[in-house]
Simulated scan of single mutants.
Amino acid sequence: MAVSAGDTAVSSGQAETGRWSAERANAWYAKEPFLVGANYVPANAINELEMFQADSFDPKTIDKELALAEGIGMNTMRVFLHDLLWQDSTGFTKRLDQFLSICDKHKIRPMLVLFDSCWDPFPKLGKQHAPTPGIHNSGWVQSPGANALKDKSQYPRLEAYVKGVVGAFKTDKRILAWDMWNEPDNTNDNSYGQNHLKTELPKDEKKAIAASLLPQVFQWARAAGATQPLTSGVWVYRTPDDWQNSAKWTPMEKVQLENSDIITFHQYSKPNDLEKVIPALETFGRPVICTEYMARGVDSKFQTHLPIAKKAKVGMINWGFVAGKTQTFLPWDSWQKPYVNGREPAIWFHEVFKQDGTPVDPAEVAAIKQATGK
């Protein structure tokens, strides 16, 4: 079925979930500036657990790095949380509040991500392992992990986490939005999946479980009283015609597009593709934000993409900010071809700044400042 402008293909049960109307979403977005930011984890954290656990939470580093972001005009960050952190709900809530205060100091309103299906399927609390030399995102962990995902007896714990963290900050104006689940049907084929470590759940099983659970996550967040918009971003490359034909959507894409208050997407591709996909996603009649882009090796760059997005007022959040323990300056295929013995790629894949605070490319920082009016 073709989707016309403003038609969001809402199913009959949608009204009960409290999804924002397109009018409410657009009124909210009209008050926002052109949103520019990065997916953020401090350089000294390998993943979201190390970022927020009591023993490794580092406000001084976060303050220093977000000052860099403020200095180039960034006004948002996309920040990943984790369900296991809720085992210390009081401490985690305090640390998240402290993080939000640091963001507010630097005029940054983050989008907080509740769940994530990327990288290591077996997260564990406690001291995180050191980065594996030469490999991109060698220590990032999924939330929920594979064991929790396939064990329905753990779903009440996941529900308590979502309702607890959203409920604690449901009216907090320091938060831009809530991202329910990052790439929920990503099976990590080239890292933990079929082409490498082979520790992932079977592909069809993982996709089916996540597609069944994601609508509940939206409901939990709404039941907790979130006053900020909710979203989950589509991430697989599709033609504009595909986005306008719901018969071509996967079950996961259908859940994402029919439950999100605002439309979010990922775009690791050339500028011509961005120019085409923006009008297609705008036909849903809702605000559109790109929550992942900028991989130099696949021609997704600040200089080309920010002007296109600004013209359409499509928010842009790139992957990576300060190079560090995630090692995402290395390309995705470093899982197959590790950069060992200190070898670096000729072209850094992600990141805006090196660990010493100098730009990877001063021309990129100039492009960001031009886009943000800094």
Rank of each mutant, 00 (worst) to 15 (best):
365 V>N: 05
90 T>N: 13
246 S>E: 13
304 T>C: 02
311 K>T: 14
107 K>Y: 08
250 T>E: 13
182 N>E: 04
152 K>N: 11
363 A>Y: 02
255 V>Q: 13
52 F>H: 06
345 P>Q: 11
346 A>L: 14
131 P>I: 06
291 T>R: 00
135 I>C: 08
27 A>Y: 00
107 K>I: 05
131 P>E: 03
106 H>V: 03
49 L>Y: 07
210 A>Y: 02
286 R>K: 14
371 A>S: 10
177 A>N: 03
255 V>G: 11
193 G>P: 01
225 G>R: 05
17 T>A: 05
342 G>W: 07
207 K>H: 04
22 A>K: 12
95 R>L: 09
110 P>D: 00
360 V>E: 01
213 L>V: 15
18 G>Y: 01
166 V>R: 04
8 T>D: 10
102 I>P: 04
338 P>R: 12
224 A>T: 08
58 D>K: 09
148 A>P: 00
27 A>L: 03
296 R>M: 01
366 A>P: 00
93 T>L: 03
168 A>V: 03
334 S>A: 10
99 F>T: 03
284 F>Y: 15
252 M>N: 11
70 E>W: 13
178 W>F: 02
344 E>P: 12
60 K>P: 00
228 Q>K: 04
358 T>L: 03
219 Q>K: 14
362 P>W: 08
208 A>H: 04
68 L>D: 10
132 T>M: 14
293 Y>G: 02
341 N>A: 15
259 N>T: 10
31 K>V: 01
177 A>W: 00
350 H>W: 09
288 V>H: 09
102 I>G: 08
297 G>M: 10
9 A>L: 09
56 S>V: 01
28 W>L: 07
117 S>D: 09
198 K>G: 07
10 V>C: 01
22 A>R: 14
90 T>L: 13
170 K>H: 11
294 M>G: 00
115 F>G: 00
205 E>P: 08
288 V>D: 02
234 V>D: 05
58 D>C: 09
276 K>H: 11
362 P>A: 10
16 E>W: 04
276 K>N: 12
14 Q>K: 06
104 D>A: 15
370 Q>F: 00
62 I>P: 02
308 I>E: 12
4 S>A: 11
203 K>N: 12
344 E>N: 15
297 G>R: 15
58 D>H: 14
294 M>D: 05
232 S>G: 09
164 G>N: 09
347 I>C: 06
33 P>N: 11
238 R>C: 06
114 L>P: 05
82 H>T: 11
245 N>A: 07
266 H>V: 02
33 P>L: 07
372 T>C: 09
338 P>G: 15
323 A>G: 15
271 P>F: 07
114 L>N: 08
49 L>A: 02
121 P>D: 01
212 S>R: 13
